[in-house]
Design a protein around this nucleic acid. Structure first.
Lengths: 213, 213, 213, 213
DNA sequence: GATGAATGAGGCTTCATTCAT
DNA sequence: AATGAATGAAGCCTCATTCAT
């Protein structure tokens, strides 16, 4: 993500690839440590240790702690957004219901792979302005916003095809996001051994029809 | 012992009242500062400053930072739980739908009064084990558990009176909680000027019937 | 010690006597707390609590912590010095050996009554300059000096009557003091239930004849 | 692992040597500062300054203030005990008297090298339980105990060869320790410019024969 | 005089960051 | 590029002292 994003050629000399390895190792270690210790509890030394490098090396690859965290967040976000965009692109096939379920499943699978870290990130989305930088809360949490944008796009389609009712529709994206986050949240407070993704159908059913008899 | 000797009327001597005042002031200041700066960003000096006292005074009233935070959480929790219990107790009157809405409204009104702080608390519920104390790591967040317990009790009634369907019912409490938290979450990322409580009917409607047309 | 030292009359009005009571209680409490917690570990609040008064009261009777400690030290010192002077004054009666033993016994009895506190004081005699006040080490520990002065006086008599040999005599006072302090020190590290005073004969015997066969 | 690859000779790589240097510098500085300011008066910042490092560096080498002090105490103790054991081991040569004097001289020479610090340590031996850690309160001061153990061993030999009388023999170790401590104590309250070690013969003479004519 | 809540200077400790090797 | 010891700003907490009641 940092470098080499759209360099036309693709040689990637040895040194670059090794460097890439280290970076990936650091990011992975960082994900674990942030996931375990929380946004503020994670210590650079722990991350270095987990990645099998020295503290100094962290700073050879990332400007500072914030940059490391930001890059990590961005990396995970891009992974998820790419999947979501793929789902949205494959719109032709089936109906809205099917696409909605695929969307939900994509999110939940992402959660399955990054539970602890995402929990930290999603849950502290809005405190990031203060915690990450002292600046104003002006960067309004890109990751969640991007997800919401896609949810909105998806739900608009649902309304167009008449599968969603128009009243209170402006709350539906929030509700869907809430159900997704809630599913993760529940898993964290009371872990099960079924993958979250398996909850997709029930979640969609609830979203479409509620709990009523 | 040596108090209250000849004050015919006043139950609490001045000293005591002042002490209570100070404590309340500290808790209020702490709520603001924690809400603004986050669980780990809040500085004792800021809390003291906001409360109009000196740092030392914080420690005359609370053992340490953790104790202050814990007391604050407990205080807010008790306030909310008392309201919820009142709603649950008034069961006779109307039907399940009405009670559900009152319940939801109670939660949302509590959110309205303590937005920022509750956001911090609710969102970092599961990282509290590490952040608050290194001790009993997995005390699973009493506040949320207590709310969930009451939601479960409420929803059981709903099922008994036949207003909720039985399939996937074990997820409903999570879903309701998610919708509540999501409502708060949305308000924080995109503040409006309508009180959250006014969202109660829409939320209940969605919970009972979903987004489907 | 603070006041009323050499006022010719001796009326001591009621108020004065009550004040005296409180002061004595404070001093006693201070002795206990200093004895238990050490010179620097003793907290004013603990002393107040032990004395059954409030912190403020300590400051009504003593200028500050240092003054309280100093007054306490002086009080105990005067008690001991008075006894020692009495022994020295009763010189006529018996011989040097008997007087030496009385002297030793007087010191050990004083130790018996004030073990913990004296241990603290005696042992930190020379660090008091720094700890008590930031000043130079110019006040060379009056208490020990006063005792040594009397020991020197006593031992001079011993030499005069020919019971002490003259060689290395300048070390004898130090040695006698060391034996006294050592007796207390041993009691503290390995408490027995015989009073220290009962050790007087053995100590004197050792002082006069050593450990040799 | 990756050290010492092509340094034919140097056993310790530079880094390691520097680290050792720093640690020794810190311990030395700590000894001075503790010696000057007392057990509780010594400030980490002063120790750092004296050692020519920053505060943080202290914590790279020692867990906390207590650990630093403890390590320092242990270091000095081991130095002394090694010397004493050497004296005890060289038992064959001369008689008991000679060995006793060597023992005493070893202790006094150690005092000569570490006057101020040892004074602090020895004198506050029994308050260490409270001051050093709130923990295992009554670990009875290993350093003094170890010395006493060796003194006892030595004196047993003296009794076996008939150079010490048996009556009151259980007090002799305490007395010898007292004389040693007293010698240090005297030097501190009234410094001379002769080394304490030169007092060994007089001390032994006194121990064996007392002050009597 | 007694009270005890408030004060705030001062100490310990942590940890992100730097930089010489 | 990697290393890891050194740095020092910043936060928490203690406790002697004050002062309004």
């Amino acid at each position: 993500m940092n470098r080499n994003s759209h360099t036309g050629r693709q040689v990637l000399p040895l040194r670059e690839r090794l460097k890439g390895e280290t970076q990936r190792a650091i990011l992975e270690a960082a994900e674990e440590v942030f996931g375990e210790s929380g946004l503020s509890g994670a210590r650079m030394e722990d991350i270095a240790g987990r990645a099998g490098v020295s503290v100094g090396t962290l700073y050879n690859h990332f400007k500072d702690r914030d940059a490391l965290l930001k890059d990590l967040i961005v990396a995970r976000r891009e992974e998820l957004l790419a999947r979501l965009d793929a789902v949205l692109a494959s719109t032709e096939k089936d109906g809205f219901g099917s696409q909605l379920e695929q969307f939900v499943r994509a999110v939940l699978e992402h959660f399955d792979s990054h539970k602890a870290f995402l929990a930290i990130i999603l849950e502290s989305e809005h405190m990031r302005a203060q915690e990450l930088s002292g600046s104003r809360a002006s960067r309004p949490n890109t990751a969640l916003l991007e997800i919401r944008r896609r949810i909105e796009e998806l739900l608009v389609r649902g309304r167009i095809v008449g599968m969603l009712r128009p009243e209170a529709a402006e709350m539906f994206p929030s509700f869907l996001m809430a159900l997704l986050k809630g599913t993760l949240s529940r898993e964290l407070s009371a872990p099960t051994d079924v993958p979250l993704a398996s909850r997709a159908p029930a979640l969609v059913l609830f979203f479409l029809h509620g709990a009523g008899a």
